[in-house]
Design a protein around this nucleic acid. Structure first.
Lengths: 193, 193, 193, 193
DNA sequence: GATGAATGAGGGTTCATTCAT
DNA sequence: GATGAATGAACCCTCATTCAT
């Protein structure tokens, strides 16, 4: 499996750095190859084309978000608490990787519709886990039975996303983690029973 | 004033159509000119360069959003009610212009950092009006005094934006207007005193 | 006759200024029109096309050189003296019009082969007058009978031209007129009997 | 070193041919690439941009002129003789390459001021060698001590240049080499002690 | 005669991808 | 598997010229 080979990860990590430092439109394949310490042609032994690199970046990195939320879901805690942990996890992973934050919040959004559709497929798994939390909260009576799951999901993700993007656009000047409790409170107020 | 000339509006409207139908990266100046029924060179009598067209699209169209919200602010109604009208207005304007919805929610976000910064400047005026509503709601005791205005703004705008983007990405299959009351309720719950 | 109308001269003079100040490749018709205080379209009432303006510039201005040399030829002086006066006249006319010097020595030489051929036709009249002086000098025994008229002409014009171009490229820092006697002496030594 | 690779020379030689046959303003990069038998993009592996090709043409070709004159300077001959050999060399190199003669005498002079400045820098080395000959001639008493080196240089180069340009503009109809002795004699007369 | 808005052809350059070594 | 030189398609913008008013 190519994904397990060291050069695969080298190239994915190089892509994150190059995109973050140069911007999406200045992230040429040759720059990524150079950053990864391989020849241009080598990229094509591991990836079908440039788009494939970008999707892989998102899939590899988003995988950590998904794995962490799966761990959270296994815990014996309330949905409210799960939501708090999910927000913290989301904020924490991006707070700890400046390059990745720039790439996911700003640069990858400049990709074309097709690439963004592929990215959304990856995102879907994450949002499905969010739905699981929301449904559990409703079932357990923590959240209002009346709420539309889809809208609630959009509020949760929209609020998280907008908050992080705003932080990135302000050059990550403040500590993102400090905002987590208030974001959680705002969201919870919107849904609680 | 160039902006008042008919060809200016022709070109802006043509740009919206071309971008919506072909995607940001396939919206060549020559396509816009053809759609507008003018020669390529004519574009440059009204716009400095391609980027200027795109900013103008956003500014012209966003101007309607801003003007409408300014009207809403003049009315003698509660902040809660203003928020409802603002959401309805936002949903309504995009619900009624499929092309514009695609352009603002998907295509213009693919532009480079510089253009998006310019777009954000235009957006700032709209968000400032939203802040005005939020502050009034807090003063009048409708919204919780504890809330952080910046986070509340991000929740309101993030939720609206995420809801519309989701609608656009689902090919505008359902009626966006029907979601307005529930979105309003969710947001309000998050903030009410 | 169009050439006698005031706008004709206005446009020719404007062309000299615009070319000198902006360079040949930045001397757009619209700039010349603006400098001349007429509309773009008006240019085409007096000139067939842009090339026609440039040829006219050269013809009108070179006309003064030719007229002056004709006057010199009428005088009852030696060929040696005529040569001195011709050099002085040439230096004097360009020393006194910085814009014209830039245009003739630098900018008009960037024109394409066809235009330069047309310019050379105009120049030919001037060179023919030079030949007349040289022939007279040979006949009168002032210049060496052995010299090849064509080569002598090339030496005289080449030396004058190179000297002036060098002066222009040094930003006309020194007084061109002071070089005339030495240039005359050098040239004369090359030809004298 | 790129300059030693065969494609570098292929492209430079192709540029000389294309410029000579089509004129400076019709020498598109794609034409040069086609003449050189490479793809358009390959040009940019060896040259920064179009201007870089043109400067390289001048530098590569002028280099031969300079190298030859350096050889002449090493010989144990009088300055008068050096001057003769220098003129012969200059005439010979252009007499033997019709395309190059057209390019240096007519086409490259149509370039913009910046490019011509770059070209003049290359030319400066050649003119400095000429100065060396002139100074030596003065020291050894062959040339007049009174002459202004700068003016003398301008006479020598101006006469050579004007002679060759005239030959090129007459479609290289006659044998340029036959003019060398007379040009040498004319110039020498202008300077001899 | 004078205007100036409109026209539209034309070219340097980038960069994802290939393939001979 | 790895290399990197070579490829060639694609596009924004300028500006000389026209012509309806």
């Amino acid at each position: 499996m190519k994904r397990d080979k060291p050069k695969y990860k080298q190239i994915v990590d190089a892509a994150v750095i190059v995109i973050a430092e140069n911007g999406y439109h200045q992230a040429q394949v040759s720059k990524i190859a150079k950053e990864a310490g391989v020849a241009d042609g080598t990229i094509y032994l591991y990836f079908k084309n440039k788009e494939d690199i970008l999707i892989s970046v998102f899939r590899e990195k988003m995988g950590v978000f998904v794995d962490n939320v799966k761990e959270i879901l296994k815990k014996e805690i309330s949905a409210t608490e799960m939501l708090a942990r999910m927000i913290e996890n989301h904020f924490s992973l991006l707070n700890g990787d400046r390059h990745l934050a720039i790439v996911t919040q700003l640069e990858l959004r400049q990709s074309n519709k097709e690439l963004r559709n592929r990215i959304n497929e990856v995102l879907k798994e994450y949002l499905t886990l969010l739905d699981t939390i929301l449904k559990e909260g409703i079932e357990k009576g923590e959240f209002d039975k009346q709420i539309d799951i889809r809208l609630a999901r959009q509020m949760v993700f929209g609020t998280i996303d907008e908050t992080i993007t705003s932080w990135v656009m302000n050059d990550q000047k403040y500590d993102l983690m400090k905002l987590a409790p208030e974001v959680h409170r705002l969201i919870l107020n919107g849904m609680k029973a």
